[in-house]
Computed example of a mutant assay.
Amino acid sequence: MTEDSRLKSRGGPIGFMAKNSIAANVVMLFLVLAGLSAARNLVQEVLPEFSLDRV
């Protein structure tokens, strides 16, 4: 049994992505763009405000 026929016989998302490289690239592009969008909206504080009420 060749590797290509084993990929075709298997189902599921990994088998689907292995057969359809364009779909895998579209999903990867979506994840990268979603990550960049989330990182752009992320609030980062260099020196956060806190109180020294306790020792």
Rank of each mutant, 00 (worst) to 15 (best):
P48T: 02
T2H: 07
N20S: 02
R40K: 12
F50A: 15
V26A: 09
K19A: 01
K8Y: 01
V55S: 07
V43Y: 07
G35V: 12
F30Y: 13
G35M: 12
G35H: 15
I14T: 14
M17C: 06
V26G: 04
M28A: 10
L36E: 11
N41R: 15
L33M: 15
F16E: 01
A34S: 12
R40V: 08
E3S: 06
I14L: 14
M28P: 00
A24E: 05
P48E: 04
G12A: 03
A18M: 04
M17V: 03
V32I: 14
S9R: 09
N20D: 07
S51F: 14
I22L: 05
S9D: 09
G12D: 01
M1C: 14
I14Y: 12
M17K: 04
L47T: 11
P13V: 09
M17N: 05
V27M: 11
A18T: 01
G15L: 01
E45R: 08
A18G: 01
M28Y: 10
N41H: 11
S5R: 02
M28I: 10
M17F: 14
R54M: 01
S5C: 00
G15E: 02
A23N: 00
A38D: 02
V27C: 11
L29D: 10
I14F: 14
R6E: 02
V55M: 04
S51K: 11
D4E: 14
G35L: 12
R6V: 00
S21Y: 06
K8M: 03
R40D: 09
L33Y: 13
V55K: 03
P48F: 03
S21K: 06
Q44A: 07
L52M: 09
G11A: 03
M17A: 13
E49N: 11
F50K: 13
Q44M: 07
A23K: 00
M17S: 02
S5M: 00
L29G: 13
A39F: 10
S5I: 03
L47K: 13
R40L: 13
V43L: 09
N20K: 00
L29C: 10
M1G: 15
A18Y: 04
N25T: 09
R6F: 00
F50M: 12
L36H: 09
S37C: 13
P48K: 02
V27H: 09
L42A: 06
N25Y: 07
V32K: 05
G35A: 12
G11L: 02
S5H: 05
L52V: 08
